[in-house]
């Protein structure tokens, strides 16, 4: 029984996920995204079984474990887009550095303003980078990886739902920003990571490639930044 229960949770998670994938294929919208439906579905199953998260996690940890190998897998798209990186790597890096600084600064300022507890603040800061990287940053800053995974998912869903619609916002128009595949892709990759890359695919292959590269750059910059920050803090 003790051995079978984790297997049950693995099977239940897989089942919910494949149902969610089918729903998304039939009707691709942001609110049918497998991310949202799998989340709600798994919560429903766990609550309906009157199980605790700790019980569920004995099975579910095998999925979370795969986030590490998935980080390595990002090497393949980076290699595939090496020509794009050679040509536009500098402008993408500029966008990533500014976007990351704004993400950290806004997270910090809003935490002060809303009086969030420090552990919650540390979980909020890495929300704008893709989850495999975000949970590592969160752990380094003393946050809760689970809360970070949730905030990151909400960020992605919201950012992808807003999408290029943000370019119609008057202040950006006054500054002369016009919709273009390249800048929209970078905006979606930086602001909405995985969900943003999916959204960028609707804008064409250039936007999707830029979004993917931006997302990976942002993850690397933030993890390396957090590692350096923790190391420096240790010696101060």
């Amino acid at each position: 029984m003790n051995l079978l229960l984790p297997l049950f949770w693995i099977a239940a998670t897989l089942g919910v996920y494949f149902l969610a994938l089918r729903a998304y294929r039939r009707r691709p919208r942001w609110w049918t995204s497998p991310l949202l439906l799998t989340w709600l579905g798994c919560v429903l199953v766990v609550v309906a079984c009157r199980a605790s998260y700790a019980e569920y996690f004995r099975g579910a940890r095998w999925f979370v474990f795969l986030l590490g190998p998935a980080t390595i897998a990002f090497a393949l798209p980076v290699y595939r887009h090496r020509a794009l990186i050679a040509r536009h790597g500098r402008v993408i890096a500029a966008g990533v550095v500014v976007g990351s600084v704004v993400a950290l600064a806004s997270g910090w300022a809003l935490s002060r303003l809303l009086r969030l507890p420090p552990e919650v603040e540390a979980s909020l800061l890495p929300r704008s980078v893709t989850t495999p990287f975000a949970v590592e940053v969160s752990a380094r800053l003393g946050g809760s990886p689970e809360l970070t995974a949730s905030l990151t998912a909400v960020t992605g869903l919201f950012g992808a739902a807003v999408g290029e619609g943000l370019l119609l916002w008057p202040p950006l128009r006054w500054l002369g920003v016009r919709a273009a595949a390249f800048s929209s892709g970078a905006m979606l990759g930086m602001g909405a990571h995985g969900a943003g890359v999916a959204r960028a695919r609707e804008l064409g292959s250039e936007a999707a490639a830029v979004a993917g590269v931006t997302m990976i750059f942002a993850g690397l910059v933030n993890v390396i930044g957090a590692s350096v920050f923790v190391m420096v803090r240790q010696y101060l």
Binding site: T38, V64, A73, L76, T131, E146, S150, A153
Partner: peptide, 25 residues
């Protein structure tokens, strides 16, 4: 690694959604 990496990245949400269930606690 082509197929394996594509498989992992296509189903990335499957690997972090279980952690999000922690919100029930």
């Amino acid at each position: 690694f082509h197929r394996g990496a594509a498989g992992l990245l296509d189903h990335l949400s499957l690997f972090f959604v279980p952690a999000m269930v922690a919100l029930i606690g």
